[in-house]
Design a protein around this nucleic acid. Structure first.
Length: 845
DNA sequence: ATCTATGGCAAGCCGA
DNA sequence: TCGGCTTGCCAT
């Protein structure tokens, strides 16, 4: 004991992790501590066996009193690997015999919470796991109160494909231990190829009586709940309404098969809702974490409903269910990983209305109204519609979102309620921690990593960046026909794999590895061991690029599964390099991030050099892409082959443009593909803050441009474009465009008072707006430009007469100039006016 | 309550 | 008036 206790106090070698297992029979929890970390313990459950998991952070200082209590704890010596030093070390493993006996501390409170969570997890799995109709039972088995992993079936299809894949020799160039790496790939494939269960679920939405202009207060919940809408995946549709008997009317115009239930008193309405909610394993809300669930809970309390009748549990910053999982879609859709990669940035603000519009092409009912003014039948329709939209956000595109949740949960080894709320950096953290435990390695402390990266960095291009990023090639201005865009498939993950980049392998301890220099940096990479992150990211990359990406294009029964997996892998791979350069990431290690981009720049530069040697004209390139002017098949093949041979990266044809218009600006171009689709990149006319009337005009011009097949078509296009523009200009000057169309829409990223250095226009508008209503950060401020000071006004406060038409003409000119300048058109000549006085003359006439 | 990175552009603010 | 700086949005 003494020896071990000393070990416990030895800050250099000591790591502690805590895991919990649940003994269902005795209803007690056994907690195991591993890997003592100074200051913090992470309480976790070992996912090795695919058991449900939970964790929470605890302060180690609370544990000091445990040191001499061998009635409560047992300490064992355990051998672990220290990856940073590349050697075996001993750490202490502490087993708590009876955590419930430890009283009166924060520690105890957390333990109790964990146990509670465990109990509900167990119930959840008991209730739903083996319900055949749900088909969710692919993860675990429960027998005699113990949970065991389900044996994965090896699908012949996968094994066959992978066997081919795994013999391709060049794939493993640069990888030190091949069989280790191949095993990783096989394990991932077996896990990911499991079928995705259809998840039974229910969405609900509540409406509350409200005072005009006020959002109901969740803390007091003084106002009545007047309606609750439900929508279930099993076809259950209900709207519950609170109303006195004599006011009940026949509700018509409700969608088909919706039950309309009346309640005289609110208590019954809520109890009915609780019963319905309890009967589903998954509950979907929109903003339920912050509104629907806490309001319902508080309201129930106010009405003296016993706490044990509520299906909900309030957590610190979210709400969950005693017997199920609650998904708050507001949290999911405001997560940038989902927004950008899963939904291709189709929506820009996070309201139910705009997300539904973008993804479902449906919207909320009755815009701009006061909820108290709705007639009963309108209220019913409004509330039910919200519940329906909420459900459909999880069901559209063949349950895309639910499927993504399941796939990401499998990869990240986290439960779905966490996956739906937490960001990609934490998914990756979890994957890496899991892998550490798999190989019995200790997780390094932040200060250990910091020590290794101090004073070794090269310089960034920009002052407020930490390291240098991707290379952007200066574009060759003009209109180019038949342009082939090539890109490196998952360039950064490829580099991480091939060059063995990981926190323990970049600048590793071995003297002889120092010769294995990384270009343009002061770093070297290990030549003796596979890097942990390198092989995880590398194996996922190989699976996506060589396997799922192709399968996703082939029509088959499993196509949707493959597409979803490919999408999920893309999210994770894209973030995998970024997290290494992010302070918030616990395995933050700048040399690894810096090495990745440095090799990336080297790879693209060398490839460009190869192109030039072969007289292939490179028009433009950005980080991992190259625009080649009219290359022949042989030339394309040559570039692909040499990239593979010299750098072991996969260069692919991304798309072929019939023509592409490049300006002299980087990250600014448009191109028309062979099937007439227009790609617009970076142009102001596409940006979300641009006034709608300009965006519309911009779209119309693009439509004209998409018709162009050869250089001869340009003249005609120019004429059409000119007339469109002058038409629109006239409307602007005659002030016939509605204020909404004229509005700039800019996000306010902090509260108005926090803008101290400069006060941008949207903040000026927001300040005016604040006199009328609340303005939160994250809101989109819609404002128009006006003649008098301060030059802007919120849309809802402005009048048509005060619009500054000249400002709008200027903005229109510069926006459209981005597509027109490359066509040698000029805005002023289009209006038929001389340059200097054109606008004024037009304005006064 | 929430956070992967850097490169690059347009617009407007604000002090010299 | 000029130029540096802040801000937001987008490309990869």
């Amino acid at each position: 004991m003494n020896e071990n206790t000393q070990n416990y106090n030895n800050k250099e070698n000591l790591l502690l992790l805590v895991s919990a297992t649940y003994d269902g029979k005795k209803k007690t929890a056994i907690l195991k501590f591993y890997d003592v970390k100074i200051q913090k313990i992470i309480l976790w459950e070992d996912r090795t066996n695919h058991k449900p998991y939970c964790y929470s952070k605890l302060d180690l200082s609370n544990l000091d009193f445990l040191k001499d209590r061998d009635d409560l704890i047992k300490i064992e010596k355990v051998q672990k690997t220290d990856l940073l030093m590349d050697k075996k070390i001993y750490v202490s493993k502490i087993i708590v015999k009876d955590p419930l006996a430890i009283g009166g501390t924060q520690f105890n409170k957390s333990i109790r919470n964990i146990i509670k969570t465990w109990e509900s997890d167990i119930k959840y799995y008991e209730n739903y796991l083996y319900d055949n109709s749900l088909n969710i039972g692919k993860f675990y088995k429960i027998k005699d109160n113990t949970i065991t992993p389900h044996e994965f079936n090896e699908s012949n299809e996968i094994v066959a494909i992978l066997k081919n894949l795994l013999v391709e020799k060049h794939t493993y160039d640069g990888i030190i231990n091949n069989s280790q790496f191949k095993n990783k790939i096989l394990n991932w494939a077996k896990l990911l190829d499991q079928p995705i269960p259809k998840i039974k679920r229910l969405s609900f939405d509540i409406e509350v009586e409200s005072e005009i202009g006020r959002i109901p207060d969740v803390k007091t919940a003084l106002k009545k709940i007047t309606a609750i809408g439900f929508f279930g995946s099993d076809g259950f549709k209900q709207i519950s309404l609170l109303t006195e008997s004599n006011k009940r009317i026949k509700i018509n115009q409700m969608p088909k098969n919706v039950d309309v239930n009346y309640f005289d008193n609110e208590k019954d309405l809520i109890l009915d809702a609780f019963k319905i909610i309890e009967s589903y394993p998954f509950i979907i809300t929109f903003n339920g974490d912050n509104f629907d669930v806490p309001y319902l809970t508080k309201r129930a309390e106010n009405l003296n409903i016993e706490n044990n009748r509520s299906p909900f549990i309030a957590l610190r910053d979210s709400s969950t269910l005693k017997n199920g999982i609650h998904i708050d879609l507001y949290r999911t859709f405001s997560n940038r990983s989902y927004q950008i990669y899963a939904f291709n940035n189709k929506y820009t603000d996070f309201s139910l209305d705009s997300i539904s519009k973008a993804l479902l092409n449906k919207s909320k009912l009755y815009q701009n109204f006061n909820i108290n003014d709705l007639e009963l039948s309108q209220l019913a329709r409004y509330c039910f519609n919200d519940a329906e939209l909420t459900y459909e956000l999880t069901s559209f595109n063949d349950d895309l979102l639910m499927n993504l949740f399941v796939v990401i949960a499998r990869i990240a080894k986290m439960p779905i309620d966490d996956i739906s709320r937490i960001g990609v950096s934490q998914w990756i953290r979890n994957i890496l921690y899991y892998e550490h435990r798999q190989i019995n390695a200790i997780i390094p402390r932040r200060d250990e990593l910091e020590k290794r990266s101090a004073n070794v960095l090269s310089n960034a291009i920009n002052k407020d960046k930490k390291f240098r990023g991707g290379l952007v090639v200066d574009p060759i201005e003009g209109i180019h026909f038949n342009v082939v865009v090539m890109d490196f498939a998952s360039l950064y993950p490829s580099i991480i794999k091939i060059k063995n980049l990981s926190y323990e392998t970049v600048r590793c301890v071995h003297e002889e590895c120092k010769l294995n220099k990384i270009t343009e940096t002061n770093h070297w990479a290990c030549t003796k061991k596979n890097g942990l992150t390198s092989s995880i990211i590398g194996s996922l990359r190989d699976l996506r690029v060589n396997y799922y990406k192709h399968l996703a294009k082939v029509v088959s029964q499993k196509q949707q599964l493959y597409l979803t997996i490919s999408q999920a892998l893309k999210v994770i791979l894209n973030a995998s390099y970024g997290v290494m350069g992010a302070e918030i990431f616990p395995l933050y290690f700048l040399p690894a991030a810096e090495a990745t981009t440095a090799i990336g720049r080297y790879t693209i530069l060398e490839t460009i050099k190869k192109c030039k040697e072969n007289s292939i004209n490179v028009l433009y390139g950005d980080t991992d892409s190259l625009f080649l002017k009219n290359p022949n098949n042989e030339q394309i093949k040559f570039v692909i082959d040499s990239a593979k041979k010299e750098h072991n990266v996969d260069l692919e044809i991304d798309k072929i443009y019939r023509y592409v218009a490049l300006s002299n600006r980087k990250k600014n171009y448009f191109g028309v593909t062979k099937d007439g689709k227009v790609d617009v990149k970076g142009l102001t006319g596409k940006k979300s803050h641009t006034p709608r009337f300009i965006k519309t005009l911009f779209q119309e011009l693009l439509k004209i441009l998409s018709q162009i097949k050869s250089i001869n078509d340009f003249e005609n296009a120019k004429i059409q474009i000119s007339s469109k523009i002058s038409e629109c200009a006239k409307l602007v000057l005659s002030k016939k465009i509605s204020l909404n169309e004229l509005a700039f829409n800019v996000m306010i990223s902090k509260s108005t008072s926090e803008y101290v250095k400069t006060i941008p226009q949207h903040i000026r508008a927001a300040k005016l707006l604040e006199t009328v209503r609340e303005v939160k950060k994250g809101d989109i401020i819609s404002y128009v430009k006006i003649i008098s000071k301060p030059g802007v006004k919120p849309v809802e406060m402005a009048r048509n007469e005060e619009i500054d038409s000249n400002k709008y003409m200027e903005f229109m000119e510069s926006t459209l100039d981005q597509i027109i300048s490359s066509m040698n058109l000029d805005f002023d000549t289009m209006l038929g006016k001389p340059k200097q006085t054109g606008l004024d003359q037009f304005f006064w006439s």
